[in-house]
Simulated assay, not measured.
Amino acid sequence: MSQNFLSSYSFSNGLNVKNRVVMPPMTTQSSFHNGMVTSDEIAYYAMRAGGPGMIITGVANVSAGGKGFEGELSVTNDEMIPGLQKLATAIKQDGTKAILQIFHAGRKSTSSILRGAQPVSASALKASYPADSELPRALTHEEILQIIKDFAEATRRAILAGFDGVELHGANTYLLQQFFSENSNQRSDEWGGSLEKRLKFPLLVIDSVNQMVKKHTQNPFVVGYRLSPEEIETPGIRLADSLYLVDQIKNKVDYIHLSIGNYKRTSLNDEATKATLISQFSARTKGFVPLIGIGSVEQPEEAAKVMADGADFVAIGRELIREPKWVQKVASGDIASIRTKVSPLDTEELRIPSVMQDYLKESFNSVMHYTTDTSTAQYYEDTPAPMENFKKL
């Protein structure tokens, strides 16, 4: 079995990564109420540092109105920098690179989370899920420009905090995706209408972030973009739209990161096409920009399959929650000791924050492989929709 996912990689800007394993962004819900980093989060990331080539944090909001859930990281002001420095330092053990994921939740927030303020989006259209989604207010032209600046300022803070890069969260129906999607963006001005106009906001965010990187750092600093290949709503994003998006950004970002539940997944909407999503995207990215493949990877042979399918990196999420030393054990040939199930009695030992423990049991019980779970559900692989239950992890 090839273990090329353990080989090093050098980005075009000079950032060297010791292996191709990525810990993807996963919600901890464990920040303070104002978005500052907690010691629980630092301990959680520190325990998983040192193995993966890169660790990408859970989302950090760039604007006060962009907060999506309680316990979320924030990078809205300079007061957050000292805590983020501690987080970056904890991640960067033994050469692991630290990436801060940044986003704006848009209409995927609530007035309760925003302390009375109405959620905002590209258009005043409710999300189709959950059922109690609130009606957002359409952003004004001036507000859109301010959010673009907010992404740039968040990047500046990430640089000052010592991170090695930022990932723009353009997936899971958050604001960047809301502008790109015809389902959520039905504007008739310069920010909506045609596919090209719906892409204007994401492109300007990327440009503003790249300008900030060029201005504030001489060291290699990567800018990644995460996307969800398709939406199940009509109208909504289809695979052809996302492949178009990739073509427009692949010379503007340092990597592209898919958000899919299983690495074997094919199109949700085009049942006639049997090629995996990873292979279809890698056909567009190969030779231009590295692609991070992802989706229910647990065993080394599965990681190898993701790479063989065309990905340049393989993201391993829930398995790194269960087995923080996955990379080290694979590298040393200690496969037999890899933990693929987890006992609720081990969660403290694994430094999983208390709030995150509850979140995992509530929303991911069937796919966390708890030793106490007697079900045989294979939700991620067998049931591709709806997406709401795993929109954040």
Results as ranks from 00 to 15, higher is better:
2 S>I: 01
2 S>P: 10
3 Q>A: 13
4 N>P: 00
10 S>W: 09
13 N>T: 12
19 N>W: 03
23 M>Y: 01
29 Q>L: 09
44 Y>M: 04
49 A>Q: 07
50 G>T: 05
51 G>T: 05
51 G>D: 09
62 V>F: 05
62 V>R: 06
63 S>V: 11
63 S>F: 09
66 G>W: 06
68 G>K: 01
72 E>P: 04
73 L>E: 03
74 S>H: 04
79 E>A: 12
80 M>V: 14
81 I>A: 10
88 A>R: 07
89 T>P: 11
94 D>Q: 13
103 F>E: 02
104 H>F: 04
107 R>L: 07
109 S>A: 15
111 S>H: 12
112 S>K: 15
116 G>H: 10
121 S>F: 08
122 A>Y: 02
126 K>V: 11
127 A>L: 12
132 D>N: 14
140 T>H: 12
140 T>Q: 11
140 T>D: 12
141 H>M: 09
143 E>A: 13
148 I>Q: 08
148 I>E: 10
152 A>H: 10
155 T>G: 03
156 R>Y: 14
158 A>D: 04
162 G>C: 12
167 E>S: 03
168 L>H: 00
172 N>Q: 15
173 T>R: 00
174 Y>M: 07
178 Q>I: 09
179 F>I: 08
184 S>I: 13
184 S>H: 15
188 S>H: 13
190 E>G: 06
202 P>F: 08
204 L>P: 03
205 V>I: 08
209 V>N: 08
211 Q>G: 14
212 M>T: 07
218 Q>E: 14
225 Y>C: 07
227 L>D: 04
227 L>H: 01
228 S>V: 03
233 E>S: 11
235 P>W: 12
237 I>T: 03
240 A>S: 11
240 A>P: 08
246 V>R: 01
250 K>N: 11
250 K>E: 15
251 N>L: 05
253 V>F: 02
254 D>G: 08
255 Y>A: 03
261 G>Q: 02
262 N>Q: 11
263 Y>N: 02
266 T>D: 10
267 S>G: 05
267 S>I: 00
268 L>H: 08
273 T>G: 13
285 T>C: 02
285 T>S: 05
292 I>P: 01
293 G>D: 02
297 V>G: 02
297 V>M: 03
298 E>V: 11
301 E>G: 06
303 A>K: 00
307 M>E: 00
308 A>I: 07
316 I>F: 01
323 E>W: 00
325 K>Q: 15
327 V>G: 00
331 A>E: 01
333 G>R: 08
334 D>I: 03
337 S>A: 15
339 R>C: 05
346 D>T: 02
346 D>F: 03
347 T>K: 12
349 E>K: 14
352 I>M: 01
353 P>Y: 02
355 V>P: 04
359 Y>Q: 01
360 L>R: 01
360 L>W: 01
364 F>C: 11
367 V>H: 00
370 Y>P: 00
370 Y>I: 11
373 D>F: 03
374 T>V: 13
375 S>E: 10
375 S>W: 06
376 T>P: 07
385 A>M: 14
386 P>N: 13
